[in-house]
Amino acid sequence: MTESRHPAEGRNRPGPAGTSSAGTKVLGLVTIAGLVTLVLFAFVFSPADTDLGETVRIMYVHVPSAIVTYLAFALTAVGSAVYLKNRSEFWDLLAWSSAEIGVLFCGLMLVTGMLWGRPTWGTYWVWDARLTSTAVMFLLYVGYLALRRVPGEGEVVARRAAVVGLGAVLIVPIVHKSVDWWRSLHQEATTLGQLDPEIDGLQYFTLFLGMAAFGCLFVWLVMHRFRVAYLARQVESSGLQAAIAERRAEAVGDGSAAESRQTSTSEGVSP
């Protein structure tokens, strides 16, 4: 039945009991150092912009959030595709973890964008191509996370979520190119591709510092989220194994009812 497919079974080596390891501790310290340096450069060292004034400083959070969001959803798509191919629990959980952190950064991108839009455009929200497509992307992945939370259906949900995770990524290039394809109020992409001569050298450096720091933060968060998800699976399956063992012990004690109990147990197991 299904329980034999569960990777946790048959593995006697106990998994890690926490989500921290030497690697993530070092990465965490690097991330903190990066974020502190970013705050210093964003608020103190880098100059105000000639056009945008002081509001340019919010870009050092907004643009890295956008890049990390793209990265996270791309990783979800890769994880989903590999999971559909070889049904590996690792890639399934990685896709899930990455999507969750991606939605977090997508929300951060939307909020910082709105806060920037208010003083610059005079309104929190405009229904232009970039903002609209980003909102749709956000909702698509909220739907993905809702599907992942459907209780008690195990592998069925994992497989269907993988299909959603693979399909939803199609919107990422649309969001990215929307400023070129439709006339948009949002500025065009300034960082990827060509170097914009209008942007000051120190501002440029701060932007890249922000991307590096946010990249580290993303990896750190995904690793912890992944380990939490992995441990949750272990607890789930160990509870299941314990319940099965208990029933088996009962059945052995009461020989006449053993067969009927056996069948009811296997029914209870299959999701």
């Binding site: 698509l140 809702a146 599907l147 299909v163």
Partner: peptide, 23 residues
């Protein structure tokens, strides 16, 4: 596609609009 994804789940009635409408 999304009908098949929500089909048979206990929460299909509430899940389908959330998945399908943004798509």
């Amino acid at each position: 596609v999304y009908g098949a994804i929500a089909a048979g789940l206990r929460v299909r009635d509430t899940l389908l609009p959330l998945l399908l409408l943004p798509a």
